[in-house]
C-alpha cells in the first residue's frame, strides 16, 4: 500500500488552522455583538479547533493509502467513514494531474481519476510529489489504454 507524501499533513493542517481562525473569529464577533461570553472563549475555540484539526490531518494521513494493482486502482481513506474504492482500469475515462496554489507552494500535486460512474470525480489522490503525480498519471493512462475498455456506457 502506497502512502501519501508526509508533507500533505502540512497542507491539511494549514487548512484546519484557517478553519480554526474562522471559527475563532465568528465566536469573537458573536461575543462582541450579541452574547456576553467569557473574553478568552474565542481563543479557546481557536485552540481547540486547531488541535482537533491538526490531529485529524495526522490521522487522515495515516489512514490514506492507494495501490496500483494489476487490473485496478485501489484506494483506502477516511477517518470516520472508512471508504475503500476499487477503480478498474477498464473504466478509467481520463486521468488528470492537478496542482492548486497551496499544493504548488508545498511542492505537492494530486492525481484525479475520472470514470463514467456517477461518483467518478471522487477518485482523487492528493499529496503526491509533482513527479510522482505525473508518473502516476502516465502509468494509469497506459494501464487504462492497455486494459482496452469498451465504450463506457
Amino acid at each position: 500500500m502506497n502512502r501519501l507524501h508526509p508533507r500533505v499533513q502540512v497542507l491539511w493542517a494549514v487548512r484546519a488552522a484557517l478553519l480554526a481562525v474562522v471559527l475563532g473569529a465568528i465566536t469573537w464577533v458573536v461575543s462582541r455583538v450579541a452574547l456576553d461570553l467569557p473574553t478568552l472563549l474565542p481563543v479557546g475555540v481557536f485552540l481547540v479547533a486547531l488541535v482537533v484539526g491538526v490531529a485529524y490531518a495526522a490521522v487522515k494521513y495515516r489512514l490514506w493509502g492507494y495501490e496500483v494493482r494489476e487490473d485496478s486502482l485501489y484506494l483506502e481513506r477516511g477517518v470516520f467513514t472508512r471508504v475503500r474504492t476499487v477503480v478498474p482500469f477498464v473504466r478509467i475515462q481520463h486521468v488528470d494531474s492537478a496542482r492548486g496554489p497551496a499544493e504548488r507552494f508545498l511542492g505537492l500535486a494530486s492525481t484525479v481519476v475520472y470514470t463514467a460512474g456517477s461518483r467518478g470525480a471522487d477518485v482523487s489522490i492528493p499529496g503526491l510529489t509533482p513527479d510522482g503525480a505525473d508518473s502516476l498519471q502516465d502509468r494509469l493512462k497506459r494501464l487504462a489504454i492497455r486494459a482496452e475498455g469498451e465504450d463506457a456506457v
Partner: peptide, 14 residues
C-alpha cells in the same frame, strides 16, 4: 456495467 466499487464503513457500522 460496473464502474467503480466502493466499500464504506461509517462509525456506526464499526
Amino acid at each position: 456495467r460496473i464502474q467503480t466499487v466502493i466499500e464504506s464503513r461509517t462509525p456506526f457500522q464499526w
